Simulated assay, not measured.
Amino acid sequence: DAQSERQTSIYSPPFYSSPNGYKMRARLYFNGDGNARRTHMSLFFVLIRSLNDPILKFPFNYKVTFCLYDQTSAQRHIIDSFRPDIKSSSFQRPQSDMNIASGIPKFLPLEVIQQEGNPYIRDDTMFIKIMVDFEDLHKTLLSYALSLNPGLPMHIQQAMIKQEAERRSQLRSDELITFDNIPGAGRFQQSLPNGYSGFQWVNANYMNISYNEQVNGWSGYSAALSSGQYVGLNKDGQMLSMIINAARSFTLKSMIVASAWNDNLILEITGKRGGSVFKSKRLTLQLQPQWIEFNWPDLEIVNFSSYGGEPNSDVKGKGTQFAFDNLCVEFSK
């Protein structure tokens, strides 16, 4: 029906953010809307007029996150977020039954869900979660929050998120590589200095995100930023390596990563010790942050190789660069 345009969109049932909260629903265009028509699935958020509105804050200005669930054990969910434009009528107090829908026109390339055996549709059913972030949840916790069993009561999920946030806050700062303490770092992209955070770096640069946005606009570099103003990236799309400097080893624990320019960028990560591959992982990256947990112990070298993908039409550049931040490691004693 969507392809023939007999029915271009469907609405979810209305739901509330809390018993006395905002009333809302989702609107889904399977075959895309506007400039995303016939190329992407479009997903939008709609505020609905309710009896609670007189006591609520408007304009609505809370971050909204959509999650399309991967229904296999791989759990490669599609996650994207947007922050409301508070000047838009979509986020003012509703004066009619519903406000105009607003959200993410290019939520997912149609080719992903048109592939036979894709993990997002099973038995003609897909599951989409909408999360309204009232507490300004740090993006490093977003993937964790959306990986929780959706069948758990909401207060249990919130307690688990809080516990995870406390656990991560206990990480020693010298184990968290943020690229924000590089001596003499300025506006321009430069090579990571050898010895930074105890590693020799190969084909590794750092970037000032504020300056890059002024010059090139928003990109996946901005999406990867988790703290401060700087991220790491692979120079010119080449294989990036981090090599322990001293005669010891380290544990690669976790990182935040995003594709800079290309949708569906492939990133292969290998951990080596004694000259042999010890661990490996293959990821498909989008222009949105992913928190990746490794816990690979006793490493001497980690290589990051990226390739493939298709240029995202919403950004200026193209290529196989990726960006990463809050790289967490633990050195052997």
Rank of each mutant, 00 (worst) to 15 (best):
D133N: 04
S89Q: 09
K63I: 04
V112S: 01
S89K: 15
L108V: 02
F66P: 00
T72G: 06
I128N: 02
F107L: 05
Q71C: 10
Q71F: 05
R83M: 03
D136P: 03
Y69T: 08
A74Y: 10
Q115R: 07
P54G: 07
L141C: 07
D85N: 15
F60H: 09
L146P: 02
V112H: 00
D80L: 10
Y69L: 13
D70G: 11
I55T: 12
P109S: 10
Q114H: 12
K139W: 01
Q75Y: 03
I104C: 03
F127A: 15
F82P: 00
P84D: 09
P84A: 13
I79N: 03
K87A: 07
F107K: 04
N118C: 06
P119Q: 14
K139C: 10
F82S: 10
P119S: 14
D97A: 14
K57E: 02
C67D: 04
S81K: 01
N118Q: 14
L51R: 15
D80Y: 09
L108T: 00
D133R: 02
P54W: 08
E111R: 14
Q75N: 14
L141A: 08
K87Y: 08
H138D: 11
D124Q: 12
I100P: 00
E111Y: 02
R76D: 15
R76W: 01
S73W: 06
D53R: 12
P94G: 04
L108Q: 01
I104R: 04
E116I: 15
S90P: 09
P105K: 08
G103R: 11
M98K: 15
L146N: 02
L108P: 00
S102F: 12
Y144G: 01
T125D: 03
D136G: 06
I104M: 05
V132R: 05
G117Y: 02
M131K: 09
A101Q: 07
A74T: 02
S88I: 12
S96K: 15
Q75G: 10
